[in-house]
Amino acid sequence: MSNLGFLATLRGYVAERKGERDEMQDAHVVLDECTADFQQLTPKVSRVAYYAVFDGHGGKRASEHSARRLHVHLAHKLPKDFSGTVNNFDKEMKRQILESFKVMDEEFLKEASTHKPVWKDGTTACCVLVLNDTLYITNLGDSKAILCRYQSETKQHVSVPLSKDHNPSNYEERMRIQKAGGNVREGRVLGILEVSRSIGDGQYKRCGVINVPDVKRCILNSNDRFILIACDGLWKVFDADQAIQFVLQVLQDNELQPPEGSNKTLENFRFETACNKLASEAVRKGSADNVTVLLVSIHKV
């Protein structure tokens, strides 16, 4: 746990584009302040925030279920005891996050199995839970989170990866799938599913597709500018550095001012504009997929 002398002010902005798909199957959650939902963490934690993007496939039921339920499970399961070391707390945090994903997946698959025909929806998940100024980043599938950090030595903004993709073509993922009796063809599980870990996708769970996310920890510092979470609809046409530079270009555009009479601050207006422009640019660059972009501004007081 970080116990820094300052708390960054966080504000989330989101933009969605359907792209060429028939429906929007992504879902997202923006909770700039949800400390009251995590009462077991107080008074040691003075701020909890939560941001998440879920990239659905085969339908939108798995992504919408995850958006409704994941933070509820987390709120119930996160550790209450702060008396141990930081390492012990982090270990317990990770254990309870993994348990939350497991329970949520089982919950959805149970619901899916009661329908005829059985729901075949699945979803990725990329979530950032903020306790004070410590980020716990949890990723399942190929949605991605990055941090924009200013490097004072080089006087440049750089992208810091916060998540790890789970692709069937990755050696360890492929080996697990094959060991479970599945196979990977053309970079997909059974030649169909693009991700090797997900919520839902009941028909692929017997083929080695699992609900175990990667969990990383990162502490915000005074050089951090924003967090970017997005589904693969963005990452198919932008790499991390390109996305960071695109957003910065909009944020630094001095001609970009809130409309007269607007109650938005300059920072709010520019972040909102950057979020929308990045999503639109992904579609313009040829991303045929749903695109969801979630930007979290980091402001030091």
Rank of each mutant, 00 (worst) to 15 (best):
L4K: 14
L4V: 09
A8C: 13
T9V: 10
R11E: 08
R11P: 00
G12S: 09
A15Y: 04
E20V: 05
E23T: 05
D26K: 01
A27K: 00
V30T: 06
L31N: 02
T35G: 02
A36S: 12
F38Y: 15
T42V: 14
K44L: 09
S46G: 06
S46K: 13
R47M: 13
Y51E: 01
A52M: 07
A52Q: 03
H57T: 03
G59L: 02
K60T: 08
A62V: 03
E64S: 14
H65D: 06
A75G: 12
K77D: 13
K77Y: 13
D81H: 14
N87I: 10
D90G: 08
K91F: 04
K91P: 01
R95S: 14
Q96C: 03
L98M: 12
K102N: 11
L109M: 11
K110S: 14
E111N: 04
S113H: 08
T114I: 11
K116M: 07
G122N: 06
T123G: 01
C127V: 13
V130I: 13
L131V: 14
L131I: 15
Y136E: 09
I137K: 02
T138G: 04
N139M: 04
N139A: 09
A145G: 02
I146W: 00
I146M: 03
Y150R: 10
H157E: 14
S159W: 02
P161M: 02
P161S: 02
P161C: 01
S163C: 04
K164R: 13
K164V: 14
N167V: 15
S169L: 13
N170T: 06
Y171E: 14
E172Q: 12
E173N: 12
E173H: 09
I177V: 11
Q178T: 13
G181I: 10
G181K: 12
V184Y: 00
R185W: 05
G187Q: 07
R188L: 11
V189K: 08
E194A: 15
S196Y: 08
R197M: 05
I199Y: 08
K205I: 13
R206G: 09
G208T: 09
V209P: 01
I210T: 15
V212N: 14
V212L: 12
P213A: 05
D214S: 11
L220S: 01
N221T: 15
N221C: 15
S222R: 12
D224W: 05
F226I: 11
L234Q: 00
V237H: 03
F238T: 03
Q242N: 10
V247T: 12
Q249D: 13
Q252L: 08
L256M: 09
G261H: 05
N263F: 07
T265R: 01
T265I: 00
F269M: 02
F271S: 00
N276Y: 05
A282I: 02
G286H: 05
S287K: 02
S287P: 07
A288R: 09
A288M: 12
V291W: 04
V293S: 04
V293G: 02
L295P: 00
L295K: 01
K300E: 06
